[in-house]
Design a protein around this nucleic acid. Structure first.
Length: 496
RNA sequence: GGUUGGGUGGCCGAGUGGCUAGGCAGAGGUCUGCAAAACCUCGUACGGCGGUUCGAAUCCGCUCCCAACCUCCA
C-alpha cells in the first residue's frame, strides 16, 4: 500500500515519496496571534493533526513545524495587527502575542491535537529573515526604496519559467491589471505585484528591529520562508496551510525561496478548505464566526445547544480536508449521534469475547476486508469520511455480534483481536478522538460500583414485575443524564 | 473582470464511466413488561440543455447558480 496525496502544485494525486527514506519534513502555516483563535483555524489544524498522526502511524519520523506569526501582518491602514492589539489593550506587543498563543494552545489541547515538533515564532527569527532579504537582494530579486525592500516579482517571473503562479494559477497579465493603490507605500513599488520583504517602520510603529536598510520589520511572507529553511532545509517534503493562503502568501513564499537559494521549498503542497457557516466562509474579519468556546457552551445564536470538542472534531472528520464544510446546528446534531454510536460500539467491541469454537468463516473475511479498505481510504489522500464510513460498516457487525444476530463463531480469535486493535488505532490514534463518556469520569471505579448496585436492585424489581420501582430507577437516572439500556445479558448504561 | 473549486436524496457529506458510500432524520418490522438501545428492510439522488459511449451523476461542450482567492484571515 502506498500513500497518495493531492499536490496543489500539480493539481493531481501523486504517490508520496519522501526526500529521505523514513523521514518527513512538514511545515504548516500557523495562526497570527492577535486575537482569539477561531473555529476555521481549528479545522485546518485538526486536519493537519490527522495527517500528522497518520504519517506517524505509517512509521515515518516526522518533523512537524508550525509557526506562530507575531509580527508583519498589516491592516489596510498600514498598522501591524500585533501593534494594534497592543495599543488597544495597553499591552506590550509580546504580551498580546503570548496571551493569544496561550489561548491557541489551550484550544488545540481541547481538540486533542498533538503539538508540533517545533513551533517557531516570527519575532524569534528576525536575523534569519534579514539574512534572507540580503540573499534575495544579492541574487538581484530585491530592491530597496526609502529603507523598505521589495521583491522584484516581474524580474523573477522573467528569469524563472513557470514558477510564479504555478500554485495559484495566476498569470502575469492578470497581475498587471490588478493595480490597487490602497496599500501603504504602494507608490514605492516598481510593480503592483511586487511585495515587501522588509518594511521601514513609521515613527509610531512600535515593533521594530535594526537592519542594513532601516529600522523596521519583516514582510509577512518572509517568516515562513526563513523558518522552514532553517528547520527543514532548502527543500522539504510537505508544506501545508489553509486554502486562503495559497495566494499571495504561498506563491510569494515559493518566489522568496527560489529567489534566495534557488530551490522550491516543498515537493508537496497541501491545502485545506474553508469552514463555512450559513454557506459563507467563516471569518474573523466579517463577523461570520463562532468561537470554539461559544460552540462548546452553546452560547451563540448559531447553535441551539453546546457541542463538546470531540463532537466537533468528529464533525470535521466527516468531511474531506479539501472540501468546504458547512457548519449548521442540524449537522452538528447528526454528528453528535454518530459520534456516540461509534464510541458506544467501541466499548461494546472491547468487551467482546471470542467463543471457544471460533474459526474463520464468511464474516471473518468480510471484517478483514473492511479493515483493509479503511486503511486504503486513508492512503488515498487521507480520506477520513470514507474511512469513517468503513468503521460504521464495522459498527453494524459489532452490534450484530453482541446481540447474537451474527455468528460469533465465524470470527476467529486473531480477527477479533485485530478488529479491537483497528478500532482503537483509528478512533484514538489516527482520528485523535477521545471517549468523553469514559474520560469525564474521574472516579470511575466508584461510579461503576454504584451503578452495578443500582442496576442490580432494578433487576430484582423487574424479576418481581415491580415495574413502578424499575421505571422509577430508570427515569431518575435519565434525569441525571444516565441512560439505561436493557439487553439480553442484562442492563448496561451510558452517560448521555 | 481574472484565477481556483463546487452544485449529489429531508439535512450533512463521500464517490467518479456499469458494482451499497456513511452519519442524521423519516417509514415499516424484530426484540422488550413498556420504553430506550440494537438489529433487519425501505425511499432509489446526482443544477439545466446538448454531445461522446453498448452504458454517464461520473468524460466533452454550452448554460444557470454558488463559494474561495485576487485586500488581513486557516
Amino acid at each position: 500500500m502506498n500513500l497518495k496525496l493531492y499536490n496543489s502544485l500539480t493539481r493531481e494525486k501523486e504517490t508520496f515519496t519522501p526526500i529521505n527514506e523514513g523521514r518527513i519534513g512538514m511545515y504548516v502555516c500557523g495562526p497570527t496571534v492577535y486575537s482569539d483563535v477561531h473555529l476555521g483555524n481549528c479545522r485546518t489544524f485538526v486536519s493537519f493533526d490527522v495527517i500528522y498522526r497518520y504519517l506517524l502511524h505509517l512509521g515515518y519520523k516526522v518533523r512537524y513545524v508550525r509557526n506562530i506569526t507575531d509580527v508583519g501582518h498589516l491592516l489596510d491602514d498600514g498598522e501591524d495587527r500585533m501593534s494594534k492589539g497592543a495599543r488597544l489593550n495597553q499591552l506590550e506587543p509580546m504580551e498580546v502575542a503570548q496571551k493569544y498563543a496561550n489561548g491557541f494552545h489551550d484550544i488545540m489541547r481541547i481538540f486533542n491535537a498533538l503539538p508540533p515538533s517545533i513551533e517557531p515564532r516570527a519575532t524569534g527569527h528576525i536575523l534569519e529573515q534579514i539574512e534572507m532579504v540580503q540573499q534575495i537582494i544579492d541574487n538581484g530579486y530585491g530592491y530597496e526604496q526609502n529603507g523598505s525592500v521589495y521583491f522584484d516579482t516581474m524580474k523573477f517571473i522573467a528569469e524563472n519559467d513557470n514558477v510564479y503562479g504555478q500554485l495559484s494559477g495566476r498569470v502575469v497579465e492578470d497581475l498587471l491589471s490588478e493595480s490597487r493603490d490602497n496599500l501603504k507605500n504602494q507608490s514605492e513599488k516598481k510593480h503592483p505585484a511586487d511585495f515587501a520583504i522588509w518594511m521601514k517602520a513609521s515613527p509610531e510603529h512600535i515593533m521594530r528591529w535594526n537592519s542594513p536598510w532601516s529600522v523596521g520589520f519583516p514582510g509577512w511572507h518572509l517568516e515562513c520562508s526563513a523558518m522552514s529553511t532553517k528547520y527543514l532545509g532548502k527543500t522539504f517534503d510537505i508544506h501545508g496551510g489553509g486554502n486562503d493562503l495559497k495566494f499571495p502568501h504561498h506563491e510569494n513564499e515559493v518566489a522568496q525561496n527560489v529567489g534566495s537559494c534557488g530551490h522550491a521549498p516543498a515537493n508537496y503542497w497541501l491545502h485545506t478548505n474553508m469552514l463555512l457557516m450559513n454557506g459563507k466562509k467563516m471569518s474573523k474579519s466579517d463577523g461570520n464566526t463562532i468561537s470554539p468556546t461559544e460552540l462548546f457552551t452553546g452560547d451563540s445564536p448559531h447553535v441551539t445547544k453546546g457541542y463538546s470538542p470531540m463532537i466537533v472534531r468528529f464533525f470535521m472528520l466527516q468531511s474531506h480536508y479539501r472540501s468546504t464544510l458547512d457548519l449548521t446546528d442540524e449537522a452538528l446534531q447528526a454528528a453528535e449521534k454518530g459520534y456516540r454510536r461509534l464510541m458506544e460500539a467501541n466499548r461494546v467491541l472491547q468487551d467482546l469475547q471470542a467463543p471457544a469454537n471460533a474459526s474463520a468463516g464468511e464474516l471473518d473475511k468480510e471484517i478483514n476486508d473492511i479493515i483493509d479498505q479503511a486503511y486504503a481510504e486513508m492512503n488515498d489522500d487521507f480520506n477520513t469520511p470514507r474511512a469513517l464510513a468503513r468503521l460504521f460498516e464495522l459498527v453494524t457487525r459489532i452490534n450484530g455480534l453482541k446481540d447474537g444476530h451474527l455468528p460469533a463463531e465465524e470470527v476467529s480469535t486473531p480477527t477479533l483481536s485485530l478488529l479491537k486493535e483497528t478500532f482503537r488505532i483509528f478512533i484514538f490514534d489516527l482520528f485523535g478522538l477521545k471517549d468523553e463518556i469514559e474520560g469525564s469520569d474521574n472516579g470511575q471505579g466508584l461510579t461503576n460500583g454504584l451503578m452495578n448496585v443500582i442496576l442490580n436492585i432494578r433487576q430484582d424489581a423487574r424479576a418481581n414485575k415491580n415495574w413502578a420501582t424499575s421505571d422509577l430507577i430508570r427515569d431518575s437516572l435519565k434525569d441525571l443524564g444516565i441512560q439505561v439500556k436493557d439487553g439480553k445479558e442484562g442492563a448496561t448504561w451510558t452517560v448521555e
